[in-house]
Design a protein around this nucleic acid. Structure first.
Lengths: 199, 199
DNA sequence: AATTAGTAAATAAACGTTTACTTATATTTG
DNA sequence: CAAATATAAGTAAACGTTTATTTACTAATT
């Protein structure tokens, strides 16, 4: 039997992310994607059940999977609070600014009902996504070192600004402005750490 | 001559927002919208040049316009820093949790190239959007009361968590969980104010 | 009577997906 | 150890449907 060439599968994913970032999820069509990946439309259907399956797997496997790995790289849930938060900030900022296509699809995850549903189902079913960060926050909360908030509130407080800064840094780059300095990002991160710590 | 009935225009906007929130921007079609608004497709084209024009004006006029008005309601750029930030938090949280359709389209504004472009063009051309908040932050920064950050950084630090909390509160409502208490939201807001203030 | 609001039905183009076919290779066979 | 075969990968072209938009018409009000 004939083996499948792995580069076609990768071409589909890479070009899909590229098209989504450039033209938007709402303008991605299977025929456009096939043309961009230089394959027949049928070939996509050899690897994905339908468009929905493609988008969900692209989102979960290609984007969220790689993002999670990058963010948690070298992270240890036993770290001191400030060190751990700074570690995640560093990883996240580096990964996202270097992977704009992934960031674009992640933003759609907050809008599109399809991706949003996929994200929530994965979050509930596996319960594993970012589990180390969950443990890290729970541990420091129980030790009385940080204000006792629900986990989603820590996420909002400590990490929502980071996403906004990533987005802003893309826009600065588009306008050919200099990037945020490491010192500035460090200052914002420190401010947030301070705001979460109990006196 | 025959006068146009204003309720058809409003039906188009209301149903469009409803459909976008329920099924996503990528699944909104002109024919679906016409059927939902109980009019002929042609009628939409009497009021909007094309689909793009409809979406952009829906976003800018219907959503961002009303949002800006709600957020700035009663806000005074001469307020003390903590009061002003708390005021905006209160306005924003109340408006967005009561207008889920508007929030959904605003989220698309961060993903969709079409809406994103419209947003940035308006931001640059008019330079007026949220000008009072801009003045408010600049004034307190120049007086040396808060850390000297660029404006977009303040936006990230002070308001990105608020959006995340609004989103989270919709998800809690969907899961029939109790809403965030006013005290909790107040605590988070105070933490952020603290993190921006210079010692 | 003049003019614009509004409609039903049609348009061509693009859509997701499938059919009918060809190509390439791992394994079996001579 | 080749040649034959089986099988899945891959393609080109088509399927019926839905898309955005328009044409040709009717309705209502000044």
């Amino acid at each position: 039997m004939r083996p499948r060439s792995a580069d076609k599968e990768q071409a589909i994913r890479t070009k899909a992310l590229q098209l989504i970032r450039e033209e938007g999820l709402e303008n991605l069509s299977m025929q456009k994607l096939a043309k961009a990946a230089e394959i027949s439309p049928r070939t996509i259907y050899l690897k994905y059940k339908d468009k929905e399956d493609l988008l969900i797997r692209l989102f979960i496997e290609e984007v969220l999977g790689a993002y999670e790995a990058a963010v948690l790289d070298g992270f240890d849930d036993m770290q001191p609070f400030a060190d751990g938060v700074r570690h995640i900030w560093q990883n996240t900022y580096c990964y996202l600014t270097a992977n704009r296509e992934a960031f674009a699809l992640m933003q759609y995850g907050k809008s599109s009902p399809l991706l949003n549903k996929a994200y929530q189902e994965r979050g509930i079913r596996e319960g594993q996504f970012f589990a180390p960060i969950h443990r890290f926050l729970t541990r420091h909360a129980e030790a009385g070192r940080i204000r006792p908030f629900p986990i989603p509130v820590y996420r909002a407080l400590l990490f929502a600004p980071l996403f906004e800064l990533v987005n802003e840094s893309f826009e600065r780059a588009d306008r050919h402005e200099p990037p945020f300095s490491e010192a500035l990002l460090g200052d914002v991160c420190s401010s947030l750490i301070q705001s979460a710590l109990l006196p």
